[in-house]
Design a binder for these strands. Structure first.
Lengths: 242, 242
DNA sequence: CACAAACGAGAGCAGTGCTCTTGACATCGG
DNA sequence: CCGATGTCAAGAGCACTGCTCTCGTTTGTG
C-alpha cells in the first residue's frame, strides 16, 4: 500500500510532491494568478508539457494546493486545540481562533486562495468541501465539551434564531454540534463567520488607519463571540457585575 | 469647467466612459482576472494599443473600476439609509446591512474585487482607502443618532475593549463615531467586520450545506450585532425577559 | 521477448499585457 | 492661412501564458 511497488510509481509520486512543493512556493510568492505551470516546469528543469502528465490542467494543480492549504490550517488548529487541557474551554477557543489568524498571517496567499475570491472561471470542486469544515468542527468540539460540562450559559438578551433555521440546526446537531439549542448553533456559525471575516479584513488591509493593535482587537472580538455562544469568560475579562 | 472645451477633450472623456462601461460588463461576466484589455478594445472596435492612451495599464483600469464599485455600494447603502425615518434606528441598521448584502449578491465579481483577494501583484492604491470607509460611516451615523436620542444601551456582560485600542478609539471618535465609549466603537467595528464576513462567506460558498435560508440568518446576525453595540431591538425580535 | 502504457521533449496554437513606430488628424500660434 | 505641435488609432512585435499534439524513448508486464 504505502510502499509503492514499481520504481515508476515511486518516481511519479515523488515528482508530484516536487511539483506541488515548487508550486506552493511560487504561490506563496506571487499569489494564485501568478502561479504558472510553465514556471514550475522550468524550475524543475523539465518542459511544460511534461507537467501535464501529472496535473491535467492548471486548475487541478491549484485544487491540489487548495486541499493542502485546508489540511494545513486544519491541522494547525487541531494541534493547537489538542495541546491544551480539555477543561480550559475559553483558552482553547481563543487559541484555536488565534491559530487561524496566525496561520493566515503566515500564509497570506494560501489563505486568500481558500477564503478569498475564487479564481476566474474556477469553481471549487467537491473535494474542497469536506476539508473546509475542519476548523468549524474544532470550534464545535469546544462547544460540545462545554455542553457536557454543563457550563454553557448563552445570554438571553439576543434575538431568537429564525424558524427557517430549524432544519439546518437539526442536521448540524446530528453531525458536528452538541445537542444545544438552535440559537446556540446559529450563534456559533455567527462566531465562525466573524473569525474569518476579521482575518480577511486584517489581511486585505481594511483595518489600515482603523485598528493599530490588531492582535488585541482580534482577541477581544473572539471573546465577545465566545460570550455570545455562552462560553464562560476568563476572570480577567469578565466585566464587573454586582 | 464641466463643459469640456475642445471637441477632443469631450471625445476623450466619452471614450474613457465607454471603456469603463465595457470593462465593467466584462468584469461582471468573467471576473477580475478575466478582464482583458484586448477584449475590451475588440468590443469597442479599436486596437488594443489605443486603449493604453486612456489607461496606462491594465491595473489602472482595474483601479478605476474598483473606485466605481466602492462608490456604487456606498451610494446604495446611503440611499437606503436616507429613505428611512431617522428615528427608526434598528430599521435603518438592518436595511443598510441588507443593502450591502443585496449589492454584493447582485454584483458578485465587483464585490470580490473590493473585498476579496487582491489581484496578483496588485496593491490597493491610496485612492481606494477613502471610498472604502463610506459604508462604515453610514453605520456610524446610525450610532450617532442613537446616542443623540439617548437610546444606546450596550450590554454590560461583554469583555472590555483592550487598552491598546484607546488611541484608535479617540481618533475614530473625532472623525466618524459619536462620543461613545471605546467599547461601543470597537463593537461597532466588530459588527462591521461581521457583516462583510457573512457576505463573503455566503458569496464564496462557505454556507453551502450549512445554512439554507441565508437571508434570514443574515438578518439574525445583523440583529445580534445591533444588540451588541447597544441599539434597541424591534419588539418582535426582543426576547421574552421578565 | 514483445507489447502496451507511461514518459520527456519539442513544436505549435491562441491568447495575454505591453512597447514602439508609423502615419493621419486636430489644435493652436504666428 | 499655414506650418508646428501634440494627440490619436493602427499595426507589428516581444515575452509570456495554458494547453494540445506528435514524436521517439523508457519502463513494466503478460
Amino acid at each position: 500500500m504505502s510502499a509503492s511497488r514499481t520504481a515508476r510509481e515511486r518516481a511519479r509520486a515523488e515528482l508530484i510532491r516536487e511539483i506541488k512543493a515548487v508550486a506552493r512556493r511560487q504561490l506563496a510568492e506571487a499569489g494564485a494568478t501568478g502561479l504558472s505551470l510553465r514556471a514550475v516546469a522550468r524550475e524543475l528543469g523539465m518542459v511544460s508539457s511534461a507537467v501535464y502528465r501529472y496535473f491535467p490542467s492548471r486548475d487541478d494543480l491549484l485544487t491540489a494546493l487548495i486541499i493542502e492549504a485546508y489540511d494545513d490550517i486544519g491541522e494547525a488548529v487541531e494541534r493547537t486545540d489538542a495541546a491544551l487541557p480539555r477543561e480550559d474551554l475559553i483558552g482553547r477557543w481563543l487559541a484555536c481562533c488565534r491559530a487561524i489568524r496566525d496561520w493566515a498571517l503566515a500564509h497570506p496567499h494560501e489563505y486568500a486562495l481558500i477564503h478569498g475570491t475564487p479564481v476566474p472561471g474556477y469553481a471549487a470542486p467537491e473535494e474542497t468541501v469536506i476539508p473546509a469544515s475542519r476548523n468549524g468542527r474544532a470550534l464545535a468540539g469546544i462547544l460540545r465539551d462545554a455542553e457536557a460540562a454543563g457550563v454553557l450559559a448563552p445570554p438571553t438578551d439576543l434575538p431568537p434564531a429564525p424558524a427557517s433555521f430549524a432544519e439546518d440546526a437539526a442536521r448540524l446537531r446530528e453531525h458536528i454540534f452538541p445537542p444545544v439549542s438552535d440559537d446556540v448553533i446559529l450563534r456559533a456559525l455567527i462566531a465562525w463567520t466573524w473569525v474569518y471575516g476579521a482575518v480577511s479584513f486584517e489581511l486585505f488591509g481594511m483595518y489600515r488607519d482603523v485598528i493599530t493593535d490588531r492582535a488585541a482587537a482580534f482577541d477581544h472580538g473572539v471573546l465577545c463571540m465566545a460570550r455570545m455562544v455562552g462560553l464562560p469568560l476568563p476572570d480577567g475579562e469578565r466585566p464587573a457585575n454586582g
